[in-house]
Design a protein around this nucleic acid. Sequence first.
DNA 1: TCGTTCGACGAACACTGTTCTACAGGCGAA
DNA 2: TTCGCCTGTAGAACAGTGTTCGTCGAACGA
Lengths: 233, 233
Amino acid sequence: MTVPSPPWRREPPRRAAKPVLSQDLIVKTALEIVIAEGVDAVSMRRVAQALDTGPASLYAHVANKDELQELMVDRALNLGELPEPDPARWLEQVKQLLRQQVQALMTYPGIAKIAWNVVVPVGENALHQGEAMLKLLRAGGLDLRQAAFAGDALWLYTKAYAYEASGWASGEFDEAEVAERGRQMTEYMRSLPPTVFPNMLQIGELFNAETARERFEFALDMFLGGLKTLADS
Amino acid sequence: MTVPSPPWRREPPRRAAKPVLSQDLIVKTALEIVIAEGVDAVSMRRVAQALDTGPASLYAHVANKDELQELMVDRALNLGELPEPDPARWLEQVKQLLRQQVQALMTYPGIAKIAWNVVVPVGENALHQGEAMLKLLRAGGLDLRQAAFAGDALWLYTKAYAYEASGWASGEFDEAEVAERGRQMTEYMRSLPPTVFPNMLQIGELFNAETARERFEFALDMFLGGLKTLADS
DNA sequence: TCGTTCGACGAACACTGTTCTACAGGCGAA
DNA sequence: TTCGCCTGTAGAACAGTGTTCGTCGAACGA
């Protein structure tokens, strides 16, 4: 039924020329798009286009977009070496691990947003980091239950912080628009009796990209302060 | 140019019969859909359909879907009365306010998910609650900067917790699928030498709907413990 | 050499948010 | 009263989305 291709038109050996599709390649390509165009630009079609194929081809290697996102998050979470617990400075080690996680998430702007879709972190990197965190907390003297709850809360906050911070940093939140909103809000609050929003009126300038790191460290210090008194009791 | 409608076909007095469109009605309808069908079912078309109109009609009252979501979140955040600061029990008051916020968010299953899209909380309810929180923290002895950072961190965590908890509770996370994932993960970890994931293997059962409240209170206690030592110093 | 199997992928389906455009009704002015 | 305007109502359409169906070609085991 099929006509052989005419001899004057050289059939390009397409299949061998381009790198063969694989899950790893797909995830890697998707993360490159995140860096180049932001996380919202990552659609199945866009990834397929970057690999010079159609969207349906991806589904042979990835169940659906959710799975692709999980794989992306876990790959992005690849840190270097994880700390070996030292009971003498476990608190500092916990902070250091969390800082590394934030940095990893912020390498790919907006990736923290899709980290929220990952219900149970099953990726290899996530598992290892979870175990490392539990080891640190237990080295500090917490029992398993306390360590588990503390690790959970810290990871939730870290994700939340990374989401806001990377949204800010990557221009995903239109900075001008946000500023305009803040201005309108301030104006509104000023139009009311000064007894209604005495505090809120003053704190607007405390929230910007410069204070982000400070807020993160503050939150960590508060939470770990509570953990320390728990461990010492 | 237009032909008058034939007299035998009674023209229904459509305009007067159905309630007139308004921003408030749109937001209210959207929240009803959230309760009935979940937050992912809320599309502009679905809201319009519920109001017996087309999607384009909504845009006369709402700039876009983001604005609609902001309005939905703020309306959902409507608590009863806010606490009057009592320096003797400010910590308990802070916890109580956060519990109320969680409860408000969980009334509309999955609404916490779109609360993350709200960059700067400009809604009336959000503003009042922010002010109330700052008042409580300052009554505890924190300065403005500390109170602002603490309030920010607490709100971030509260949103994060409410998102996970309401996703669990509303069946947005397919419980069977999540369980299957957990089983696979456990099996995988068991297949490795027991020294690799000694802690992670044991904590799986600590994370379910029953322990959710406990985890929330634990996180609050830790953070507020740190706040207390800061305030007392 | 002949099935068989598996990945590639064009086309299509059912959606999404948003905009364009036409139009109808009520209101103020002439 | 009649004319013009203006605002809110929508149908249709555009450009995009995730996902599935079915075909087709190449490679591999028998």
